[in-house]
Nucleic acid binder design. Structure first.
Lengths: 200, 200
DNA sequence: ACCTGGTTTAACCATATGGTTAAATTTTCG
DNA sequence: CGAAAATTTAACCATATGGTTAAACCAGGT
């Protein structure tokens, strides 16, 4: 940690604190402490909390959404896409478990904040996946399904167990370790569930 | 609003503010304003912000979880349960759209806070639903599925579109009205999707 | 040796915020 | 009516917090 440049240390510390406590709960002092520097230097690099937050938020968001959309736009079969998505995405989320809740939370609190510059990169072309679903349906490989529901179902089953982890842990009477195993199981379970539903 | 008793007005105002802004973002002054009273009276009824928050949080949680669990424990068929759940729950969430995010957020921030007194009422008996799934599978009505994945899949598909509403609205290029219609569609779509997956 | 930019120290400021207090006023109700 | 409870007013307090400032310190590079 010590050999990182200050700006990097700040960014990293800010990420941690903001992800854990959100914009409102985060304290500039804690970010400075965690970065191993002092408040003066913190403001030397980032003029304000808002600015620092924006910077973290945008970076996280750009790291978060395109990961999904790219896969949807690829040229594999629906079945392959479902598998890849569940697999890649779960791995990614296991490394960033607070990310979905962070993004969704700040998004809900200020829906406008997001859609300034980022717009382009986080749009998903629904037609692409819609056409593919229709085509594979005509070929008799799957049943016909509305792409919006298909996407929502899939993403929900993948992401929600992370957002709601404390709840599921409690309901299932798991400890964190066991819950991790459970999430691993879902990398196979979710695609199986989805493809079973799509089977003709 | 004027004819409510002060304590009720406070509770209602606090619910609104806490749900919208979370514990950290909420301001006692705003709660007082929204309740149409003054800060002094606010503290006259609730000694501290923490106490007021707890009170709101617990009430909301007790309103939130048992609604699901009861249905799971009933004696209808799996198919009926899936339909009832999707239907009732979506209606409930449409009236309380910020609730899931609020509960999950505060839960994640302080996982301990929840599990003091409430414990009993929010536990779900996994065995009940597990046995039913097994029985119906043996009767050849559905395929066999792990109850933990069954539940997670179902709840995820129902709840997540509320938690992630700003995102879906953007991705689907909907306005709020259209998104409401979409959520209504899902009351049929989700059970159909689930039952299709469970069909033998 | 010196210049420059990064970094620390430490004091400081304005404001927001949760919370308190005491007295005055209004409402409720026996 | 009259006492008790509810409510307002308005000032006040302590603390936390984001942010600033100025001077000093330290490092690397020329």
């Amino acid at each position: 940690m010590t050999d990182l440049k200050a700006e990097e240390k700040i960014k990293k510390a800010a990420s941690e604190v903001f992800l854990l406590k959100g914009m409102d709960g985060a304290r500039m002092q804690e970010i400075a402490d965690r970065a191993g520097i002092n408040k003066a230097l913190l403001h030397y690099y980032y003029r304000s909390k808002e600015q620092l937050f924006q910077s973290v938020f945008e970076e996280k968001l750009l790291n978060f959404l395109p990961k999904i959309f790219q896969i949807f736009h690829g040229d594999q079969s629906i079945e392959e896409k479902v598998h890849v998505l569940a697999d890649r995405y779960k791995d990614f989320l296991k490394l960033n478990p607070e990310l979905p809740h962070f993004v969704l939370g700040e998004l809900q609190r200020r829906p406008d904040r997001l859609f300034a510059k980022i717009d382009a990169r986080l749009s998903m072309n629904l037609d692409v996946i819609g056409l593919q679903l229709k085509k594979e349906a005509q070929e008799g490989r799957i049943r016909l399904i509305d792409p919006k529901h298909f996407i929502a179902n899939l993403i929900s089953m993948i992401v929600f167990p992370f957002v709601a982890s404390p709840l599921f842990i409690k309901v299932f009477n798991y400890d964190k370790e066991e819950y991790f195993d459970y999430l691993d199981q879902r990398k196979k379970e979710v695609p199986a569930f989805v493809m079973a539903s799509l089977s003709v």
